[in-house]
């Protein structure tokens, strides 16, 4: 990807993010079309079709990152109030997206080549209408809402993120799941050519798989997410579309999804497969159930000084009013 380094300027002259993005996108598209022109002319002159094809792939405009594009949004009654938002910089540079590397700063560096256009989401399995949605159609399916959610990672850290999206139930309703559909499975994008082999960092079977029980998937809080901070999702945060389940540990919220599959049995999910004693299928945020390797009673809020980070973890991450009834009569220590 062609990334221009912004010139060094005194902080007083630093432009707003919007202005910078506009400038940056314009410059990038100018550079790209110029390059395409030059390379195409050269290829034609040489009569080298193969070369032209190669060049077209190298600077494929479809791979151009759309991150930063403003989204039109509406307010939502389901948004979380009274929390200080985590900065855009921390949300986009402290990521667990293992397909792009294990260290938290790796996805921001490595996810640039994720081809977010064209993009389709295939709905399959036990549904009356198995449909394939183009990302543009998905974006227009329902009005996009601003939803601030607390985000609690199983590792013990947390953020407050202003997501953009609409309830996943809106998509599910379009596909008429059959009565036999008891669970929904989400599969993330994976391509060895794009997501280089980070075998030295982790040994995990891709593609990433996650799942929810039907009632969990239909809960209005479960968000089909397209953006954050009012803008298109940066690739490292799961562009172009991901799931956000705010009362569960972060790994339940699958990124960059390409398949939504309705199934009759509890689907196999990545971290549960990896270490079933550490990551349960439900993985509801629960301060009373320790992770085998650490307590979940408290968490560290990202972006604060070290002496202010520690805070109490809330049952269901503070969303008990909306979700607790789904687990009535269930032993949550056993079904962790």
């Amino acid at each position: 990807m062609l990334i221009g380094k912004p010139p060094d300027v005194p902080s007083s002259e630093i432009t707003s993010r919007e202005a910078y993005n506009e400038y940056f996108n314009r410059r990038r598209s100018e550079r790209r079309s110029f390059l395409r022109g030059v390379v195409a002319a050269g290829a034609v002159a040489l009569g080298a079709d193969r070369l032209a094809e190669l060049a077209a792939n190298l600077i494929d405009p479809r791979i151009a990152a759309l991150a930063g594009t403003k989204l039109q949004t509406v307010k939502s009654p389901l948004t979380t109030t009274g929390e200080q938002l985590t900065s855009f910089d921390d949300i986009t540079h402290y990521n667990n997206f293992y397909e792009f590397g294990v260290d938290k700063d790796k996805p921001a560096k490595n996810a640039g080549g994720l081809p977010t256009r064209p993009w389709t989401v295939k709905v399959e399995g036990k549904v009356a209408k198995p449909l394939t949605f183009d990302i543009e159609a998905l974006l227009k399916l329902r009005p996009l809402e601003d939803r601030v959610y607390r985000h609690r990672c199983v590792e013990g850290w947390s953020m407050v993120i202003p997501w953009v999206g609409y309830s996943l139930s809106e998509l599910i309703k379009q596909c008429d799941p059959l009565p036999s559909a008891k669970y929904v499975q989400f599969l993330s994008y994976f391509d060895h050519h794009v997501e280089k082999w980070y075998g030295e960092d982790a040994t995990i079977f891709w593609p990433y798989s996650e799942g929810l029980r039907m009632d969990e998937a239909m809960n209005p809080l479960t968000l089909l997410t397209f953006g954050l901070y009012g803008e298109v999702l940066p690739n490292q945060d799961g562009a172009p579309v991901r799931i956000v389940v705010p009362w569960k540990y972060g790994f339940k919220s699958a990124k960059s999804i390409v398949t939504v599959r309705f199934v009759d049995k509890m689907p196999s999910t990545t971290w549960n497969d990896q270490a079933p004693n550490e990551y349960g299928f439900y993985s509801n945020v629960n301060p009373n159930v320790d992770h085998p390797r650490w307590s979940q009673k408290t968490e560290r809020r990202i972006g604060l000084p070290f002496y202010e980070q520690r805070r109490t973890t809330l049952m269901f991450n503070g969303y008990g009013d909306q979700v607790a009834s789904m687990y009535n009569g269930m032993n949550l220590a056993k079904n962790f």
């Binding site: 402290y94 850290w157 560290r300 604060l304 000084p305 070290f306 980070q309």
Partner: peptide
């Protein structure tokens, strides 16, 4: 880095 608050997003884990 602790004094200037530049330990990164998760200073506790960084320390």
């Amino acid at each position: 880095e602790a004094v200037t608050n530049t330990l990164g997003p998760d200073p506790t884990a960084q320390l």
